[in-house]
Amino acid sequence: MMDVTIYHNPQCGTSRNTLALIRNAGVEPTVVDYLATPPSRAVLQDLIAKAGLTVRQAIRQKGTPYAELGLADATLSDDALLDAMLAHPILINRPFVVTPFGVRLSRPSEVVLEILPLPQKGPFHKEDGELLIDAEGNRVA
């Protein structure tokens, strides 16, 4: 069994689609509701680095206190941004997924396919109806 962890927000459609894609690969992941159980600073830094992102790229702006906290200030250090993300976990962009094949911020949800085994177990449609995986378990172009 493949060891997979998803840092998940069940209120987010992208996160729900990503979780469903992981399960469609035949994997039952460890699901971390990061709003209730935020990662430690070290884990968050590791996720961001392994995903190949900057701290700023890992911050969610939409639907968060990003503007109110003055986080658009380009002079803020990574440490200050991480402090804000840990104090307000809703600022952590989602979903981060960890597999033996790597770490990805799965936005859009199909990015997770880069680090999951293919073919998938069957067809998959996103919540909006978009077909991502065909009946043979292969990604649709």
Rank of each mutant, 00 (worst) to 15 (best):
L44T: 10
T37M: 07
Q45N: 13
S109L: 04
G63K: 00
D3R: 12
D78V: 12
D73K: 09
P95R: 02
E136G: 13
S15Y: 06
V43W: 03
P119E: 12
P108N: 03
S77G: 09
T99P: 00
E136Q: 13
D79Y: 03
I115T: 09
G102E: 08
D73V: 04
F124E: 04
R23E: 15
E127C: 02
M2C: 09
L86D: 10
I115W: 01
F124S: 08
F96K: 01
E28G: 02
K126P: 14
D79P: 07
L91K: 02
P65Y: 07
P89F: 03
P10H: 07
R56Y: 06
M2Q: 15
C12E: 00
H8W: 05
T75F: 10
L132T: 13
L35T: 07
H8N: 06
L44N: 08
L82C: 09
L105N: 01
G26E: 14
A141N: 13
A87R: 12
S109F: 02
E110C: 06
K62C: 01
M2T: 15
L113D: 03
P123K: 13
E68H: 03
A51T: 04
S15T: 03
A87V: 04
Q57S: 12
A135C: 02
E130W: 05
D33M: 05
P89R: 10
G52I: 04
A72Q: 15
V27N: 06
L47K: 02
T5F: 01
A49L: 09
A20L: 12
F101M: 15
V97M: 02
T54V: 09
Y34V: 05
N24W: 10
K62T: 13
V103M: 00
D33P: 09
Q45A: 15
P39D: 02
R107M: 02
S109R: 06
P95L: 01
E114H: 10
P95Y: 05
A87N: 14
T54A: 13
F101D: 14
D33W: 02
A74N: 11
R41S: 10
N9W: 00
F96R: 01
V32P: 06
D78S: 12
L86W: 13
A25K: 06
D78G: 08
I115S: 09
K126D: 11
